[in-house]
Design a protein around this nucleic acid. Sequence first.
RNA 1: GCGCUCGUAGCUCAAUCGGAUAGAGCAUCGGCCUUCUAAGCCGACGGUUGCAGGUUCGAAUCCUGCCGGGCGCGCCA
Length: 585
Amino acid sequence: MKKQLAELVHRALEQLKADGILPADAVVDVQIERGRGEGHGDFATNTAMRLAKPAGRPPRELAQALVEALPAHEHVERVEVAGPGFINFFISPDAAFAVVSEILDAAEHFGRGEPTGQRIMVEFVSANPTGPLHVGHGRGAAYGGTLCNLLTAAGHQVHREYYVNDAGRQMDILAASVLIRYLQLFDTDLRFPDNGYRGDYIHAIAGDLRARDGEAYRIDSAALAAGLPADASEGGDKEKHIDAVVRRARELLGEERYQAVHQAALDAILGDIRDDLAAFGVDYDEWFSERSLTDTGAVDHALGKLREAGHLYEAEGALWFRSSEFGDEKDRVVRRADGAITYFASDIAYHLNKLERGFDTCIDVWGADHHGYVPRVRAAIRAFDADDSRLEVRLVQFAILYQGGERLQMSTRSGEFVTLRELREEVGGDAARFFYVMRKPEQHLDFDLDLAKSESSDNPVYYIQYAHARICSVLRQMAEKGLTHDAEHGRANLSRLTESHEQDLLTSLAKYPELVESAAAAREPHQLAHYLRELANGFHTYYNAHTFLTDEPALRDARLNLILATRQVIRNGLDILGVSAPETM
RNA sequence: GCGCUCGUAGCUCAAUCGGAUAGAGCAUCGGCCUUCUAAGCCGACGGUUGCAGGUUCGAAUCCUGCCGGGCGCGCCA
């Protein structure tokens, strides 16, 4: 409808240009928006006001001229000029009714956009595989997963990817942590490093390792501990200590056995993360290994390209990328003085790889604490002479959990944190997903556990699901009362839907496809959450005001068509959010 | 200190590239169940959009400066 109206306005503009009222070179993008309040019509456009200056005429006068030049349209009942120069469109009732049949015909496809041909990759969560996902990752998972659903619904071709940080120091520390817990199974006196990973899951992995491979990794614990630099609690440095532990463990085990422990730890934790995300309704097309970037030479390839272009230089023994020439605040090291490749170098290679895979748009979903990292990645893309608008970084703020009015604190390293799994078990997957995406991603989120658990109208998830269940219930009641629903008869009698509640509901339903499109374009799933609440509200209000199962077949059939259409849209919307649409509460 | 980001009703948040009278929920107060699920509905109360300027037909939205919160400023990942 919006498109059709825009077309009408364009034709009127051409007419005005031909008449000499508008300068021939005047350009304006015609914006059609939904009328907000009473009396503002179904749609409105501000075109006249935007043209007032270039045309050198008062906006209202222009608006009037536009209205007169506007071609007739079967669905436009009347058009009027209002306020400072808005043009309001009033849609004919028949056009409004048509959406009901449209929804029932399209069913689960209603609201899905035409294929755009755009290939979009979304990389999200990508948490280090050093422990289970916690509630901080949950928001990225819910946001990313929902965004992917939304983009798919809008007609884009979406690729979901998880970047697995399976290389680097943190993974070595994880492997060492597992090894020491494993050795403690034989020698309870062995000391655990301050900076090791302390969670219970480390014990579990160590136990599994022993069950699978027996004593294969049993090394002399005295030799492991002897002569190491002091740990923090011994008056030393925890970083130096843990690095020494890793080095010693590697020597004593030998590379092959060390890699086996490393791999076992990675497999266990990554498997857990996969299961967790799958249970949360988040699925991936690809799990991209950081280690593979060095193995396949992708890092050398990327650094080679930068070197050829003259963007690398050596200083103080390290290799630097001249990122400050591309908008970063300072240059960055890509290869340390000790020869090791930095995390940033892998990331440069990863993003080059993404570009080379030919995605039109690459969306990175990151925790907001990484925002300082954006300019340097963008710098790398510019240095490759690529269009940096192909990279979009979406920052997600952390969620703060509240229970009983108290803020729950957490920290990963100490092992004291609420896992995503615990959250799901506590409040349920539906409530968790909905609460996570209820707010704008860049806004801090106060996650009220008590509210998410409550089965009351305070809880927006239940409120929406209840609307769906209530419609199902009406149909069950219908059967019990021995009534029937003739959908074709209902279609023929949609003009009986004259109540204001019905008109409002029709308007809400018609808005859905536009909403999917705009929420996808803005990368804002919360718009959909808000929309569904409003739609549910429109239904509940209607439910309380009128009886659907009346004795009059024509009216009953029409009303049932309307609420079935409502149920369909709620279902489609909840599906995008990854929330179930129950038939009973 | 520098940079990024956010400040909207008592609380949590909306407000479609700058649009018409800034909207919801919660909380508070008052109504509605012999009638399709009251997990619901209706009404009332509630605002100088942090402050001060600027840009224009028009600003919560854009610009500048303050104030306040969060985050980031490693040859860590």
